[in-house]
Design a protein around this nucleic acid. Sequence first.
DNA 1: TGTACATCAGTGAACGCGCGTTCACTGATGTAC
DNA 2: TGTACATCAGTGAACGCGCGTTCACTGATGTAC
Lengths: 200, 200
Amino acid sequence: MVLRASLQKREEKERVRHALLRAALQLGSEHGFSSLGLREVSRAAAIAPTSFYRHFTDMPELGLALVHELVRPLLQTLTSEPVTANTPHATLVERMFEAVEQDAELVRFVVAERFGSFASLRKALAEELERVVLALHWADTGADRATHAPHLLETGMALLLDGLGRILDASGNDRAVLCETLIRAYAPLVHHAQTEQRRA
Amino acid sequence: MVLRASLQKREEKERVRHALLRAALQLGSEHGFSSLGLREVSRAAAIAPTSFYRHFTDMPELGLALVHELVRPLLQTLTSEPVTANTPHATLVERMFEAVEQDAELVRFVVAERFGSFASLRKALAEELERVVLALHWADTGADRATHAPHLLETGMALLLDGLGRILDASGNDRAVLCETLIRAYAPLVHHAQTEQRRA
DNA sequence: TGTACATCAGTGAACGCGCGTTCACTGATGTAC
DNA sequence: TGTACATCAGTGAACGCGCGTTCACTGATGTAC
C-alpha cells in the first residue's frame, strides 16, 4: 500500500517548516544561532516543542536546512541574471546591499555563521559562497567550468562579506556611505584584474 | 581603615581570573561564546560556580575582559615593532599567521565574535581592530594622529581576518598555501597604494 | 459506495538535568591601636 | 606584642526554571478492495 500526502497536506507541512526556519533566523539574529534552543524556536513558530521532531532531528540539522533552502536561493539571485558588463562587481555589491534591505536577518546569518561555532555550518556556507565565486568567474570570462576561480574573486567575496557585516550594525545614511566605500575598495581589484587580462 | 590585599593575594586572584578567561576561550572555540554558561566555564577553571561572581557579574562582562586583556595585547604585538619597510603588509600577514600557531583559540575568538551574536563584543572588537589599522597608517606614512585611516588599510584588515578564518579550519600544509595566497591577494592593494602615493 | 486499515503532523504530560542566582558561612589575611 | 575587627575569595545547599527527549495518543486524510 503506497500512501501519499495530498498537495494540501504537503503544503501545510512546508508552511510549518518554513515558519521554523524563519523563527530560527529571527531569534538567531538577536542572540546567535548556537545559543538557540529547540523549544525557543518551536514557541516562536507557534507549534508544540514535540512537533519540532516532525521536521528536524535537532537544531544543527535545521541550520543546514537554512543554508540550503534560504541562503542558496539568496545567493543565486546574485548571479542569476548577468551583471552589467562594464561595472560587474559594483553591480554585485549593490545587489548584495539590496539583499540586506530585504532580508537583514538572513544576511546576518550568513555573515555570522561563516566563522561561527558550528563547523558543519561553516563548511556548508563556504560551499555555497564558492558556488557564487565560480559562477561569477564563468560569467566574467566564459571559462571552462572545471577552471578554478581566481584568487581575485575570492578576495572580492571576502571584502563583500566584511562590508555586509559592517552595514548590518549601521543604519540609514551610514549604510549608503559604507556601500560606496566598499565599491571604492573594489577598485584596485578590478584594475588589477583588467591589467592581468590585458597581459593574457 | 584602609585595607589592601597583599601582593600574594592579588596574584592569586589574578591567576583564577586568567583561568576563567582561558577556559572561556577554549570552550568558546569549540561551540561558540554565546552558548557558554557560567557554570561550564567555572567548572573548566576548577572553581565553584558561585565563585564566578567574585570576578565577573556575567558572561558578557567576561567577554569584554577577553577583548581588553587578551585580544588587545595580541594585536599590539602586530604593530609594536616597525614592520619591514619594503614588504610591510606581507610581514603583517606573516605575523598574524604566527599568532594562529601560538594561540589559535584566541584568534578564533576574534574572527568568530567580530560578527558574532553579542553586539557589545562586536563593538569592542571593531574598536581594537581600528586601533591596529590606525597604528599601521601612522607607521606607513607618518601621518598625523588625527588623520583617518585610508580605506585601503581597512580593506587589508578585512582580507587578513577572512584569511585567518579560513586557515583556522585548515591544517598543516594547507595553512602555508593559504598564507601565500593571502599575501598574493594583498598585491593589488599594495600596488594601488604605491600608485596613489606616487600621485600625491 | 462503504468499510477496514495505514499514515503522519501535531499534542500534553512527564522525566531527569543543568542552568543562573541567593544566601549564610569559612578561613586566611589585612589594619588599628 | 596582643587583641579586636574588617575584608574578601571561595564555598555548598537550595531555589525555581527552561531545557531536550520519551511516550502514548488524536484526528484528519489517504489507500485497498
